[in-house]
Amino acid sequence: MFENLALSENGFLFDSRTGSTYSLNQTGTFLLRKLIDGELPERLLKLLGSDFEVAEEVAERDIEQFLFRLKDLKITNEQENGE
């Protein structure tokens, strides 16, 4: 599903299908890495909470916004509809 995405440890993301590149912050890199590794979006809240000190409601909102942003940029949406 994410085979077109190359994400470095530093948060540099390359979408080989579109040629677009992005810079992700530490939590964005963490979340997308988990998705690329096969974690379900529903598990992200728990995973983020175990690695970062963050209030649950803040984390929930941030994850929701992050997933929306990925979809808006067609980073995830395109993957789902692409092939």
Binding site: N4, S16, R17, T18, G19, S20, T21, G82, E83
Partner: peptide, 21 residues
């Protein structure tokens, strides 16, 4: 995909992509 353009819209930088479609 062109990454940067001249004022005439010509590629001054680019990157190879892979898109099966």
């Amino acid at each position: 995909r062109k990454m940067q353009l001249t004022d005439k819209g010509k590629a001054w930088g680019g990157i190879t992509i892979r898109d099966q479609k």
